[in-house]
């Protein structure tokens, strides 16, 4: 569904992505892991067209998406730190995005309901806590039934109950045949929802395997240990 070929990106002298090539298939939950600054967020921002790569190509369903915009109707994005106009109320933000995406007939309001956002509709975005902003981001990402979901550290900042709601939503959407990319540091969570793990280190793909084969390779029951073993073993 998404094919990334030889993606390179540098910010000044810092090489953030160094020749990343990877393919993601529909109906899978892929977890992107790696140390801080490994380029996880940059990869997702490249797919979204927010960061323009120096070279390489990104294709969705066979079509290159560089310098295009219409393809973003198939993507729901939940940023790591949601930034919203401080003066707007939750209601206005949601209504604005919906107004812009008027072409979408079926609107998925499940998360708005589960998170009780309607009770907070008249609060200003600037006055919300980080966790509540995350809930708004999540609700917006899932709202238009996108085929691809990119969630950047979705549960960081969410309380356990809200995180649980989000996880079950992720699994539900996966069953509908959607591709879901999650960057995360929490291994237990990765083990719970993901099918595949993509590990980035210093802007390069360290490995991209299913969870099963990672565990088999390392001969470990727990994913966190298995990954630690693989990483240390090669160093």
């Amino acid at each position: 569904m998404i094919t990334i070929e030889n993606l390179r990106k540098s910010y000044g002298k810092l090489q953030v992505l160094n020749d990343v090539s990877v393919t993601f298939d529909a109906g899978k939950v892929v977890s992107v892991i790696g140390p801080n600054g490994a380029g996880k967020t940059t990869v997702s921002k490249c797919i979204l067209g927010m960061v323009l790569p120096d070279s390489g190509d990104i294709r969705i369903n066979g079509e290159s998406v560089l310098n295009k915009h219409a393809y973003r109707s198939q993507i729901g994005y939940m940023p790591q730190i949601g930034k919203y106009p401080e003066n707007m109320k939750i209601r206005q933000v949601i209504e604005m995005i919906r107004d812009i995406r008027k072409d979408v007939k079926e609107v998925d309001e499940e998360l708005i309901g589960l998170y009780g956002l309607k009770d907070m509709y008249d609060k200003r975005m600037g006055s919300l806590s980080g966790g509540t902003k995350q809930k708004v981001s999540a609700a917006l990402a899932f709202m238009f039934n996108p085929q691809i979901l990119i969630l950047d550290e979705p549960t960081a900042g969410l309380d356990p109950i809200s995180a649980e709601i989000l996880k079950s939503k992720i699994l539900k959407e996966k069953k509908k045949g959607k591709l879901i990319l999650i960057t995360s540091h929490i291994m237990s969570e990765v083990e719970e929802v993901a099918d595949e793990v993509l590990c980035l280190v210093d802007g390069q793909v360290k490995f991209h395997e299913t969870i099963k084969s990672i565990k088999a390779q390392a001969n470990e029951e727990r994913l966190s240990r298995a990954i630690a073993k693989i990483m240390n073993g090669e160093d």
């Binding site: 067209g49 915009h69 930034k83 919203y84 995005i97």
Partner: peptide
Amino acid sequence: NSYEFIELLVAQPINR
């Protein structure tokens, strides 16, 4: 000051 607004919009299917 509208940087946040712009960031919100670039993730939508709108031409920059």
